[in-house]
Every structure is written in C-alpha cells, then in structure tokens.
C-alpha cells in the first residue's frame, strides 16, 4: 500500500540523505544518532498509540547495544547486518519472555515495571567486569556484507545504512499501524474491555506491540553501538529511558515520521544547549519540555499538521 505517507517518507529520506552527505561530519554523526534513537522513539509511539508509556525502553536499547558489542568482541562478528539481526533477536527474545508479565499491566504500572526491569539489567551490567562494568567497552569497526570501508568512508556508510533502515522501518510501522492489529492499539487505549468483547485478546496485542517496540529499540541500539564505537551501562539507565519518553512527547504520535523529526530536533537542541550554556543546559531542556507540554499537547508534529491544515483552508 503506497500512500501519501510512504511518498512523504521517501522524500524525507532523500532530503536526509542529501543533507547528510553535504553536511559536516559532526552534523552527519548527529543525524545518525538522532535517527537511531528515533527508532527507539518510534517503538514508544507504537506503545503510546495503545495508551502505554514505558520508562524502561533503555532495556531493549541497551540489549541491542550490548548484543552488537559482544558479538564483535566475543564471536568476531563484524558484519553490520548480522549484528542488526543479533540485536533484534536479543531484544525481541527478552521482550517475548518478559512480555508475558508486562502485557498484564497498564498506565503507570506498565511504565514503572518496565523501568524496574531496565534497572535490573543496569545492575547486572555494572556488576559484570568482563563487560567493563560501568566503563563499558569499545565496539569493533563494522563491515558491510564483506565491504570494509576505509576510515574516511565509514561515517558515510553508517549514515547511509541508518537512513535507509530508518526509512524501511518507518514504512513498515506505518503499514502495521494502518492494519487491523495496529488499530487495535487505539481501541485498547480507548476501552480495553470492549476490545475483549470483540473477541480480541488485548494482552496478546500488547505483547506483540511490546516485541515490536523492543525490536525497534534493538535496531536503534545496534546502530548507536556501531556509530559511537562504544557501549556502556548508561544506555540502560532510567535517565536514558526518560530521554526517549521526552522525545516521544516532544514529537507527538501523529505520524511515524514524528519520532525521527523530534529526535533530530532534540539532538540539535541539546548539542547547542551544551555549547552555549554549559552550566544550565539541563534547565534549558527542562524549560523547552514544559513549554511543549503546556502549549503543544500533541507534540511538534501537531503544530506542523495544524499549520498545514491552515494552509489548505
């Protein structure tokens, strides 16, 4: 089903690719990080459409990061696609298991139970000295189906991979959200009991959504690990998860493109806040967050679509 959104996403891909290739390296790197984290936020969007927010996405993200790092260091796997497959496998498998428990919860309990699990992973990683404890460890330079780019070309290759994957993932999720299973999410948010009366298991639907969110976070984690070249337990800490939720609220849930857009804005905002007010950047970020929550309840995407509608009139 190729609809306007898919064309829009394709156009966005071309713009991002164009921008990324002419931009300075640091901006390209920022874009890679933003897109990778955007995928985690996209996972949150899938959950939020079903009325669920998780304060523990760092768990799946961290699993992806560590799967990629460990596969390289212990198994000698450097192929980016194989790492992606491993990262997805790791995060979805754990999500499948924990999902039996997590899918029973809603609202704040869902958010907090997720957080508890991510904090347990954090605790385990901090205790594991083979994995460098809190210092983490460096990830091997990736190869791409046998192609080992030179140091100069590596950044471009990782960027190309990230941008294309973001596009593919966004289209897939767009299709999923448009399907019956996708819409069930919104039905669950509105009234779970009625969903059950219709003969659908809300728990199973939530379980699947969790696994989708975990897979997306796993991809984001693997790409982050490849791009940064280093993993550490901070990636599973609750503040990292909180950051994802922050970006999700900033973006809004209006479109699958929103998380990526929000993520890019967030990274840019933060890096400039860091540069221009190194002593009060947290305050600046907090203030932006408050303003968005108060004045843009639907996130930045709602502002964008509102202005577009305005033009149409």
């Amino acid at each position: 089903m190729i609809d306007r959104t898919v064309w829009g996403l394709f156009a966005a891909l071309l713009v991002v690719l164009g921008a990324g290739f002419i931009a300075a390296d640091w901006a390209q790197f920022l874009l890679v990080l933003a897109l990778a984290k955007g995928m985690v936020v996209l996972g949150l969007l899938v959950l939020m459409r079903a009325g669920l927010v998780s304060f523990g996405q760092g768990l799946w993200y961290g699993l992806g990061c560590y799967a990629a790092g460990m596969a390289g260091n212990f198994l000698g796997v450097t192929d980016a696609f194989l790492l992606l497959a491993l990262g997805i496998a790791a995060s979805t498998t754990v999500a499948f298991i924990l999902g039996f428990l997590l899918s029973r919860y809603r609202e704040i309990f869902f958010a907090l139970l997720n957080m508890a699990f991510s904090m347990i992973l954090f605790g385990v990683l901090v205790k594991t000295s083979v994995l460098g404890s809190t210092d983490g460890f460096n990830v091997l330079t990736p190869t791409f189906l046998g192609y080992a780019p030179s140091e100069a070309a590596l950044g471009d290759t990782v960027f190309l991979l990230t941008a294309v994957i973001s596009f593919v993932v966004a289209v897939l999720i767009h299709w999923y959200l448009g399907s019956t299973m996708g819409f069930i999410g919104e039905a669950i948010r509105e009234n779970e009991l009625r969903v059950e009366y219709l003969g659908v298991s809300a728990r199973r639907a939530v379980h699947i959504k969790l696994m989708i969110a975990a897979a997306l976070s796993g991809i984001g984690g693997v790409l982050t690990a490849i791009a940064v070249g280093h993993v550490d337990p901070e990636m599973t800490y609750w503040t990292t998860s909180g950051e994802f939720v922050f970006v999700a609220i900033l973006s809004g849930t209006g479109s699958v493109a929103a998380p990526f857009m929000g993520s890019i804005i967030f990274e840019v905002l933060r890096t400039y806040a860091y540069e221009y007010s190194p002593y009060t950047w947290q305050m600046l970020m907090g203030a932006v967050m408050l303003l968005v929550i108060i004045f843009l309840p639907g996130g930045l995407w709602s502002a964008l679509s509102r202005s577009r509608k305005g033009e149409g009139k």
Binding site: A24, W26, L33, G136, V228, H230, D232, E234, T271
Partner: peptide, 15 residues
C-alpha cells in the same frame, strides 16, 4: 555519559 561525550568530541573538533 560516553555516548554524549563521543558526539561532543566530534563537535569540538569539527564545529
């Protein structure tokens, strides 16, 4: 955290 610092290092050098 380290991820942030890697990005900031690039910014220092390139920006």
């Amino acid at each position: 955290g380290a991820t942030k610092q890697v990005a900031e290092f690039r910014n220092l050098v390139q920006r």
